[in-house]
């Protein structure tokens, strides 16, 4: 069985989406502890991907293919994971705030987070503050990722955070903000938990925040 774990890690590295999904299912069927599959197979493989990306040996398109393979594996694994394990790979809501239709940065960050094992719910673009708050209430995510490209729509991110406070659920979710005009100062000013200057840092911050 441990040979299959190695194959999973290798499959992730080479972005073999179907193979990684199938192997994960096989190990679950074989009765391996889901936590072991997660740690020694999936996270082990994605750690190598992360390292190779930092060393400029892998580029975004390859990393995203690995992320897709991770996603395929997590689809199989998530239903059998213990509550404690699945919170390590928690839920993220990603959304572009109202008035803004730009989404490439948000989508990229979402895919990278899937690669890190998160369950990503994409609310899409141009979403009203109240819709975002409703979704947070309903899905109870660990992380809310807010995106805006325009200086004119950026203030909406602060509005969402205030609305979360008013709804009494601000402390139940960590908020990460990103987008070209956003800065660390701005993130602090509006009371966000973290600022993501790019998708991979966003993913790192999300992992830090769920670890607490």
């Amino acid at each position: 069985m441990s040979e299959k774990l190695g194959k999973i890690a290798d499959g992730l590295l080479h972005g073999k989406i179907d193979e990684v999904g199938e192997l994960t299912q096989e190990l679950i069927n074989d009765g391996m502890d889901p936590e072991e599959i997660l740690q020694k197979g999936l996270f082990a493989g994605m750690d190598v991907v992360g390292k190779k990306f930092r060393d400029c040996e892998m580029f975004i398109p390859e990393v995203l293919r690995s992320a897709k393979a991770m996603h395929a594996a997590m689809e199989k694994l998530r239903p059998v994971l213990s509550e404690e394990s699945s919170s390590k790979a928690g839920t993220v809501i990603m959304v572009t705030v109202q008035g803004d239709l730009h989404d490439i940065g948000k989508n990229l960050a979402g895919m990278m987070m899937e690669g890190a094992g998160f369950n990503v719910i994409d609310m899409g673009i141009d979403r009203k503050t109240e819709d975002i708050v409703e979704m947070v209430k309903k899905e109870k995510p660990q992380i809310l990722g807010l995106s805006a490209l325009l200086t004119t729509t950026m203030p909406k991110m602060g509005e969402v955070i205030n609305a979360l406070k008013e709804a009494g659920i601000r402390d139940q979710v960590k908020v990460i903000v990103g987008g070209a005009p956003v800065t660390d100062d701005f993130a602090q000013e509006i009371g966000a938990d973290a600022y993501a200057p790019n998708a991979s840092i966003g993913t790192e911050k999300a992992l830090e925040l769920v670890k607490g």
């Binding site: 580029f59 490439i104 940065g105 790019n198």
Partner: peptide
């Protein structure tokens, strides 16, 4: 192009 290391 989107730079495939930095996503810039």
């Amino acid at each position: 192009v989107l730079d495939m290391i930095t996503t810039t």
